[in-house]
Write a protein that binds this DNA or RNA. Structure first.
Length: 413
RNA sequence: GCCCGGGUGGGGUAGGGGUUAUCCUAUAGGACUGUGGAUCCUUCGACUCGGGUUCGAUUCCCGACCCGGGCCCCA
């Protein structure tokens, strides 16, 4: 009986894994150079952590189970909540800002599609403790730079939930949420019908439609005309100025809603083409979560990058890596292993484990793409030398083993 | 969860109610026991699963599972 992978999971073959590792390493080093520290949280958490944060609605997509001690456990569907939980548990007294990054797998029970899996990887970062636009701008800039590292193009959209919410005074949370959902979907007809249904104020309706249509460089000016000189617009303008300083291209979009309603201020999304319906590769914003997990309320900003989606669109390729194959036989295995051991301190070395003939070992060297074959046969051992064969030119020379190591390491392998 | 379109060796494919199920590629070995890439030979290996229709199903029908596209939601 053949056993297959569970639905929505993937096996990563050597080439896939190498490329993923390569991109991951690039992202890590960028996060690191921006002063963020890596953390790890558990693969599973108390289910409550996620329902408190996102509401019962998230149960539909969560992998949860009752453990042998009757605890309700969930495989993490995302990492912001675990990171903030960790912050509350261990880092509240750490010097601010607390700058963290993570790269881990997450699980959601959803219908798999292009760019959507049941096990997927998120690369994210959070700045905890700064309510200032400088922190928001830094987070956005970091996300953009990471995509650039990966060779992925992205279109950055920035909005601010606080601004649109000033129109909602007097509306309850559920109604606000429904409006934001329709705004996010860009379902103008549905939005109009819904506003009619709840008998929303005519002036508010007009302002809302005008606001979500605003875009371009004077969007903020236009918004001021609509809403007056409110504080949210001032800080939003400050953020945009900082994005300019960071040298980022962006589109102002007051219609970005983000799925989860714990976002309080700035929100941003980055889209990439070539991903079909799942075109969002990154999402983030400013939020308040710590108080939900029993901590002191604190302003945070963060983002999560859909690593699998980045992999779909990224053009960066891992560098070619060359190998050396050491060819030896039963009689010369000892000498062969010694050379291999020395060379392995510097480069990738294969030695035959198939009991193959001389010719077959060279064929193997060819197959694995080895640039060099080091031949250690009885003739060489008798002369206390080794033969170095260039697999491209076919040329071969006799060296002693010190020269061999020097030669190969000098070639940067 | 909903709506489409698909599943033939490891990968890519041809075919089609009764076949020895096609070809390419990859694997392992050999021709070629101290010199690779070419060529040739051999080997390994498949009709996703379960029902139904039928004398007979890999082929037709239904369902499940899985994959792809879209909706929803989101990364």
């Amino acid at each position: 009986m053949k056993i297959n992978r569970p639905r929505g999971t993937r096996d990563f073959l050597p080439d896939d894994t190498r490329k993923r590792r390569y991109i991951e390493t690039k992202l890590r080093s960028t996060a690191r150079n921006w002063g963020y520290n890596e953390i790890k949280t558990p693969t599973f958490e108390h289910l409550e952590l996620f329902t408190v944060k996102s509401g019962e609605g998230i149960l539909g997509v969560i992998y949860n189970f009752t453990d042998k001690g009757d605890r309700e456990i969930a495989l993490r569907p995302e990492l912001t909540a675990p990171v903030l939980r960790m912050y509350v548990n261990e880092l509240q007294r750490a010097p601010k800002p607390v700058k963290l990054y993570y790269f881990d797998n997450c699980f959601r029970y959803e219908r798999p599609q292009k760019g959507r899996f049941r096990e997927f990887w998120q690369f994210g970062a959070e700045v905890i403790g700064s309510p200032r636009p400088e922190a928001e701008a830094e987070v956005i800039a970091l996300a953009s730079h990471m995509l650039e590292d990966a060779g992925a193009d992205g279109e950055l959209h920035v909005g601010h939930l606080g601004i649109i919410r000033t129109l909602f005074t007097g509306l309850d949370t559920a109604t606000q949420g429904q409006i934001m959902r329709l705004v996010d979907k860009k379902d103008d007809k549905g939005l109009e019908d819904y506003l009619e249904e709840i008998d929303a104020d005519i002036g508010m309706r007009e302002k809302l439609f005008e606001l979500i249509g605003l875009t371009g460089s004077d969007a903020v000016q236009e918004a001021k005309r609509l809403l007056g000189d409110i504080e949210e617009l001032e800080t939003f303008q400050a953020l945009l100025d900082l994005l300019n300083i960071h040298g980022l291209d962006y589109t102002v979009n007051f219609g970005i809603a983000r799925g989860l309603d714990y976002y309080t201020g700035m929100v941003f999304e980055i889209y990439s083409s070539g991903l079909g319906a799942q075109n969002q590769v990154c999402g983030g914003g400013s939020y308040r979560l710590a108080h939900l997990f029993g901590g002191k309320d604190i302003e945070s900003t963060g983002f999560a990058l859909g690593f699998d989606r980045v992999m779909e669109v990224c053009t960066a390729q891992p560098p070619e890596e060359s190998r050396v194959v050491v060819v030896c036989f039963d009689e010369t295995r000892k000498e062969g292993m010694q050379i291999a051991k020395t060379l392995r301190e510097h480069m990738i070395v294969d030695v035959d484990v198939m009991g193959r003939s001389f010719g077959a070992q060279l064929k193997f060297a060819n197959n694995v793409g080895a640039r060099w074959a080091v031949i250690i046969g009885e003739d060489e051992v008798a002369k206390n030398k080794v033969a170095l064969k260039d697999m491209e030119s076919g040329e071969q020379e006799i060296l002693d083993s010190d020269e061999l190591v020097k030669r190969l390491t000098a070639l940067n392998y």
